[in-house]
């Protein structure tokens, strides 16, 4: 197993079990304690785990954007349900924007059931996943940010502003109590804002783990959206925007 795969697997294991000791990790992955300690060192430096005397616990996504592989494993089932509902909105032949979030990327397998789409995205992951489909793929361009496998910045925004989308499908890291779709990192905002601003229909896709979290950078208020899709049975509340609850 490559080191990066092992790091992601450790994170996934911690997310499920909550806590793991160094001997447990050694047994699980068949590597030496020294190797595990080096892995935990790296994960700890990236602020992805807290190290205790004997093992580690996951560090819920604090000031960094966790690796896209790790994020994909989190709440995968909920994301899939949300993605399926979103895909049902897409008509053959339409022009859509797909962002780099793992929730929205889950739409890929369902989009293969559509014909003649033009898909614009800032996500390198999407390009890799869909490169052999028959849809037209357009990359926005921009500055590469490796943890998200995606591009950001002014070039990305300009790429988005060249189009008028039928739908923009976006997920945010959080939906705050006040009803703002919000992000951890500032650079994540402008691309999403631009896409919402250039779409006939703006769709926010957020699973329940994102509700009522506080994050510093606002993208848009949910009242300005056309559609929200979530698996949360209750939140968001008090909004005129239609909510599809899956």
């Amino acid at each position: 197993m490559l080191r990066d795969e092992r790091l992601d697997s450790i994170l996934r294991m911690l997310n499920v079990k909550g806590f793991a000791t160094v001997p447990q990790l050694c047994a699980q992955f068949g590597v030496s304690p020294a190797t595990v300690r080096r892995d935990l060192e790296e994960l700890s430096e990236r602020r992805l785990v807290h190290r205790n005397r004997n093992g580690a616990v996951p560090y819920q996504e604090h000031h960094t954007e966790a690796s896209v592989h790790f994020r994909a494993a989190v709440n995968a089932k909920a994301k899939e349900k949300i993605a399926r509902a979103a895909s049902e909105l897409v008509e053959d032949g339409s022009l859509i924007f797909i962002d780099s979030s793992t929730t929205v990327l889950s739409m890929v397998s369902f989009l293969n059931e559509r014909k003649n789409l033009t898909i614009v995205s800032n996500s390198l992951m999407l390009m890799t996943l869909m490169k052999n489909t028959c849809h037209r793929l357009i990359l926005t361009g921009g500055e590469y940010y490796a943890p998200s496998h995606a591009f950001y910045g002014s070039l990305a925004v300009e790429g988005i502003e060249a189009y008028n989308f039928d739908y923009a499908f976006i997920s945010s890291v959080a939906v705050t109590e006040e009803g703002w779709a919000a992000e951890t990192l500032e650079h994540s905002v402008s691309v999403r804002q631009a896409a919402f601003g250039h779409a006939r229909r703006s769709v926010l896709m957020c699973d329940k783990s994102k509700m009522n979290l506080h994050r510093p950078y606002n993208i848009i208020h949910i009242d300005s959206l056309d559609q929200i899709i979530t698996d949360d049975p209750v939140y968001p509340v008090n909004t005129a925007t239609p909510v599809i609850r899956v």
């Binding site: 390198l124 990359l139 926005t140 361009g141 500055e143 590469y144 490796a146």
Partner: peptide
Amino acid sequence: PEGRHRLISLGGELAARNMSVTGRLAIAG
């Protein structure tokens, strides 16, 4: 390798064959 240099990709239509982009977005960029 990640993080060592600033990488900027042009935008444009994806050619799946060699994972490259071309077109008016690429030229504008």
